[in-house]
Design a protein around this nucleic acid. Structure first.
Lengths: 206, 206
DNA sequence: GTCTATAAGCGGATAGAC
DNA sequence: GTCTATCCGCTTATAGAC
């Protein structure tokens, strides 16, 4: 873990974590170079290693720092809310996350693509119970007839996949459309279309 | 490119490309180790480098070999077909691809996550025109009232994201559900749910 | 806390025998 | 075509001055 006793130390740790996020998100743990992270953080390599003794320590710290933000939108789904509003809010929050923190999304994507070895414990201990609770909420809505009888877990995966796609595959989207979520019009079209398709697909026919 | 004059050479090239797909899919170009690929291919490192002079040559060859299979299902969408049947066929084909060739999916995912530097030309020259044609097909269906007025490009991204997710994020899905597309029941639930949600979302209300 | 210098080892690629 | 041996640059990490 990081040494962070002084104020200047705290500031450096933040700079390192920001730089490390960018590099790890692009190359993964093995492909990342500590020299590259040090350069991006504006310090020498030995100085970086003064704060994080190994590349693995730094990687774990970046994952941990990012994990909390990652779980928040899902936790916000309220069983007492209207299903359409709750799903609209969740999809919007996820898409907004892809726009604001694309590197965080790509960090997790890279980690999971590579087998999730470092994230597996967190997925099991933190994400799994949360997902289970929200799947229960969706199931309850279905039982009450407020949601069409779709498999809740698959629905969650569809929402994750669709929204995270815009961060994870941004390079491909840029080639095919010339745009990104930073483009306000593109963002609006994407959000409206995703919301329309998903909601029309899962709300009960009236 | 690969040397492949003799029969034994051809066989080795195949073994190398298979091994390289597995390693590149997991670690990307930078993270992959030629020694690891050689070991997986059952030969010495110098022998591997006899067939592919550099790691980059090998990476380009793997990408190229995989690209054709990647584009086929999209090309198969027929403007003359019934929209519901065409979309059902495409989604099913994509999901089937994620089940049968998850490493190919992860190879492209890793490449695009890392900026698509090696794939950009192929995306621009091969994928972009194909996508443009299929988006035109979707637009025509919308104009004819056979498809709801959703943004066609977004619909394509949603289908890609949802189906590829099961290959690219298989590690996470395994932690959360204990299953994979190899599980016949899981595959059926996934296919049915994705088809149901997408089709209900994009077919015109009758 | 930060630096220069450097150790220690890994990884891509080559030489040359067979 | 395939191997053993090896070169050499790069990368992680440490030592020790400041």
């Amino acid at each position: 873990m990081a040494r962070s006793k002084t104020r200047i130390g705290e500031a450096n740790v933040e700079k390192i974590l920001d730089a490390a996020l960018a590099v790890f998100a692009r190359y993964g743990l093995r492909g990342a170079r500590t020299g590259q992270i040090a350069e991006a953080a504006g310090m020498s390599k030995p100085n970086l290693l003064y704060y994080f003794r190994t590349k693995e320590d730094l990687y774990a710290a970046v994952l941990e720092r990012t994990l909390r933000t990652w779980l928040d939108p899902l936790a916000a789904i309220d069983p007492a809310a209207d299903p359409a509003e709750a799903l609209t809010g969740y999809i919007s929050a996820k898409l907004d996350f892809s726009r604001r923190f694309p590197e965080a999304s790509r960090l997790f994507a890279t980690e999971i693509l590579q087998g999730a070895g470092w994230l597996e414990a967190a997925l099991r201990n933190d994400l799994a119970p949360l997902v289970e609770a929200k799947v229960a909420t969706l199931s309850q809505w279905i039982a009450e007839g407020r949601l069409a009888p779709v498999d809740p877990m698959t629905l969650v995966f569809m929402i994750w996949a669709t929204t995270q796609h815009y961060a994870d595959f941004a390079a491909q989207i840029a080639v095919l459309t010339g745009r990104s979520l930073d483009d306000e019009e593109f963002y609006a079209t994407t959000r409206d279309t995703v919301l329309r398709v998903v909601l029309a697909g899962v709300l009960p026919r009236t």
